[in-house]
Design a protein around this nucleic acid. Structure first.
Lengths: 215, 215
DNA sequence: ACTTTCATTTGATCTACATCAAAGCGGCCA
DNA sequence: TGGCCGCTTTGATGTAGATCAAATGAAAGT
């Protein structure tokens, strides 16, 4: 019986998990891989509005219909709960709601940081911010400490970055080249980035000092 | 004793409620008036990241320091709770956490709608969207039904709108003039707007059909 | 090895919005 | 009643990033 309320689903890179407007009778959290939430206008303009990393949560108790497209950008495993039983569980066990509140507040903070980026940062600052955000996460997972160079993977295509940053893919490419030329980052292949100085990168990102992310 | 955990504070239009980085030992909700949350970069670029209307909530259980400037844009009354006792209350009464979760999820949806606006909409669409959002709220508070013209107040200066929309105040002014010229809206004074056709406005806003807001 | 395909880079040009600079236009106080 | 001050509008010009268009490169199949 338990299988009916909790189950796993796998997706390949590029697959759509759910389309905006589809019925959604589950909530889920990411186990491995990366997924994105995007909104699309009728004429095709797209904006990414969320980046889901392992442990992040999708879906909303008390909502029938998905408001965004959810897409796997890497191979992806999600852990799903049927919505009805999940809602019941939530009303019985208070600390689940509290934990979910914590996570949602974190997401809201991230969304607001993103609003500053979208509304006011230059293309160069946007790219630097994106790299910084990914680096920050990786660093906290990997070794800590020393100011040495940091190596990270960009799990997104240029197009996905463009959708994330509110730019075109050409501008993304040009700005990455510029940051490379200026020694802020260097690339091996298309996706592997090394950052000689995190401080320099954060400066380029325009975040006030550490942006409230570190520490 | 109760006065110590719950109290009211009033602010005049333009006053700052709290500065980013200040210690914040309370949470609060708006009783009357309008407040804004803004982020500022060192060089002065500003982006509004939240608009607080009556019943909206500010502050976060388990956070010491305000991450944004909070400003009263109209005369404002807030209902404040000292954080410690509020947190205890939350752990005792589960439905408070659940209600807060609901509200936070709504705010997150609004923030994501805003990300689409900031990243992908044109200046004209941004203005139309802002008017639509304010109109939508006022309409739901006032009479319902008929497709007749809608009258609303803009509770923001041109500069505040610019900070909200990621534009300059000059562009805001020009686009408002353009929408007026084209008969999408008309103004009496600087702040009073009448909307002959909500459908037309929503079209200009670029929201797909009703944007999922109505109904 | 050779083509196909798809992501990325780079170049040339165009344009929406920013920036710089003056006027209007009320409201408020003397 | 007049003048000052903050907001807003309008005008002239500049520019960051979009758009249009090739060229390059790297992985995948034959």
């Amino acid at each position: 019986m338990l299988e009916q309320i909790k189950y796993y689903r796998s997706f390949e890179a590029g697959q759509t998990v759910i389309w905006s407007g589809d019925r959604m009778d589950f909530v889920a959290s990411v186990v491995t891989g990366i997924a994105t939430l995007t909104q699309t206008m009728e004429d095709g303009r797209r904006q990414m509005v969320g980046l889901l990393l392992p442990s992040d949560f999708v879906g909303r108790p008390g909502r029938e219909v998905a408001p965004y497209d959810v897409t796997a950008t890497t191979d992806l495993v999600m852990c799903c709960f049927r919505k009805k039983p999940f809602e019941e569980m939530m009303s019985h066990t208070p600390h689940v709601a509290q934990r979910l509140l914590e996570m949602t507040l974190d997401e809201l903070d991230a969304a607001r940081e993103w609003m500053l980026l979208l509304g006011r940062k230059t293309a160069r600052e946007k790219i630097a911010s994106l790299v910084a955000i990914i680096a920050r996460r990786d660093v906290s997972l990997q070794q800590k400490g020393g100011k040495g160079p940091v190596v990270v993977d960009l799990p997104l295509t240029r197009e996905a970055m463009a959708d994330y940053l509110g730019l075109t893919l050409e501008t993304v490419s040009r700005q990455i080249s510029a940051l490379k030329r200026d020694g802020v980052i260097s690339l091996e292949g298309k996706r592997h980035v090394t950052i000689p100085s995190l401080d320099r990168l954060l400066e380029e990102a325009g975040d006030d000092s550490d942006g409230g992310f570190l520490g």
